[in-house]
Nucleic acid binder design. Sequence first.
DNA 1: ACATTTGTTAACCAAATGGTTAAACTAATT
DNA 2: AATTAGTTTAACCATTTGGTTAACAAATGT
Lengths: 203, 203
Amino acid sequence: MTKHKDNQTEEQILEAAKQVFQAKGMDGARMQEIADKASINKAMLHYYYRSKQLLFEAVFNKAFALLAPQLNAILNDDSALEDKIRSFTQNYISFMMKHPYLPNFIIQELNRNPKFIESIKNNVAFPNISKFKMQVEQEVEKGTIVSVNAEQLFINILSLNVFPFVASPLIKAFTNVDDKAYKAMLEDRKTAVSDFIINAIKK
Amino acid sequence: MTKHKDNQTEEQILEAAKQVFQAKGMDGARMQEIADKASINKAMLHYYYRSKQLLFEAVFNKAFALLAPQLNAILNDDSALEDKIRSFTQNYISFMMKHPYLPNFIIQELNRNPKFIESIKNNVAFPNISKFKMQVEQEVEKGTIVSVNAEQLFINILSLNVFPFVASPLIKAFTNVDDKAYKAMLEDRKTAVSDFIINAIKK
DNA sequence: ACATTTGTTAACCAAATGGTTAAACTAATT
DNA sequence: AATTAGTTTAACCATTTGGTTAACAAATGT
């Protein structure tokens, strides 16, 4: 009952679809371009994924499944707050430099189609803030950090880490730096951002 | 030499186009939908703006022209750094709550079509970081703030202010808050973000 | 009053696009 | 060797879409 040529084609399609969807979005993507990039006939796309919408969802869910564990690292880990912030920043920026299209893709399509949220909320290990919230509240009570709302801190951490990837063309233009210099700045941010955050909340 | 019915139709088109383009992006927007929303015939769009591309550029440039002065407020103003950060955060968040689609629209289309950058660089009073950079360096030298790279600080300020608008559906999902609570959080951020930043750089 | 320019509409068009179909092909099963 | 099930292709299709055209209406200039 095994497929003869295994699922190689299916993988090729998914990889090609990922590239095209992430570069051009759902609306800008063309099935023909995906087929070309996967070196197959356009009809194969429909044979394996039925429709553009379903193919897109497969790509989207796979992308989100890649991102989610990164966030769970800071939300559900047991280490101390300061350590978490440092390791998260370090890891997240490294990860994003390898997948620069990812955050924009997720954010964009989620904005365009908010009902997707419901679908991903069940799907994978969806990041949950509750543990992080408890930890922050404990640290505030202990007096090791200034009084800060956990949600706001979480937003701040996320903003500082994600935004430079989402808005890179704009920031590059404003700061007048080329691609190479921007990469160096991102490299610096692996430590600069955690210093910034920890400074901001330390008593 | 004045147009008889003044430029009412032209304005209607631009307003309708703004709504549709900002909600659906260049690729997702349909000329027919813009025409319907402007209560005119589709041919009129082409009569006034020739093509979808040109209509889009008109909308984009107008949107950017709205955003640019906001940024120049922090970059070119003469007040003290701390004051600037406070007033910018306050004003920017207020402004964005009135134009929630704006940052996403700009960022998205700039990512999709980086050559736009060149067009806006000349067009309007394009934000320039050099004055802000000098100010930060002076403050570092005076010892009033910790040693910090001006570009990085600028990115941080921008990130903390803009990202919550760009990624609102995602953040809402993660933090488990509804629209109303999120609005309240944004309201809080008018002061919380400046406190956070100033704490982070103060000696 | 009349000609000319500007504004507006309905009908139309060619190209692109997501999707389908039916036949051909491949490889394992009997 | 014949059957069967899964895979691949080329040709095709209906609809959508940006854009055009030609006729008509309303201002404007003379």
